[in-house]
Design a protein around this nucleic acid. Structure first.
Length: 114
DNA sequence: AGAATGACGCTGA
DNA sequence: TTCAGCGCCATTC
């Protein structure tokens, strides 16, 4: 299978999985990686989202780390704060430090077979 | 080719 | 709950 992060369509699979996240819910990088079969490649999921050109139709803002916190980094050139705003717009309370009640809004991914 | 970095995650204290 | 250490692997210099 081409589920490897280095596969040509890896980014597409990431975007497809992220697009499945319902509005007002959250998912973790590891969760997305697990969905596309890239077990243990949570970092690469982050890289895929980083390659997204904003604005994007992909709800990338609904993906946070397992700590339930938005990754604040200067490398994101403010996209981290955009993520915070987008989440607030969906009714998800976000702390000034980017922390949010992940357990409350965690997305329950449906089984692959339906 | 080698070294450093990073939108992560788990374990231990 | 918070902080530190280690493993993970593509990206970047």
């Amino acid at each position: 299978m081409s589920s490897l992060p280095s596969a040509p369509g890896f980014d597409q699979r990431v975007y497809a999985a992220v697009a499945q996240i319902p509005c007002g819910q959250l998912a973790t990088y590891g969760q997305i990686a697990d969905r596309i079969g890239a077990f243990g490649c949570a970092r690469q999921v982050g890289w895929a989202l980083r390659r997204l050109a904003l604005p994007s139709e992909i709800p990338w803002h609904r993906v946070v780390n397992a700590r339930g916190q938005i990754c604040m980094s200067l490398s994101r050139e403010g996209s981290d704060w955009i993520q915070r705003e987008l989440l607030l717009a969906e009714g998800i309370p976000v702390d000034a430090e980017g922390r949010l009640p992940l357990r409350r809004y965690l997305w329950r991914p449906p089984p692959p077979a339906g």
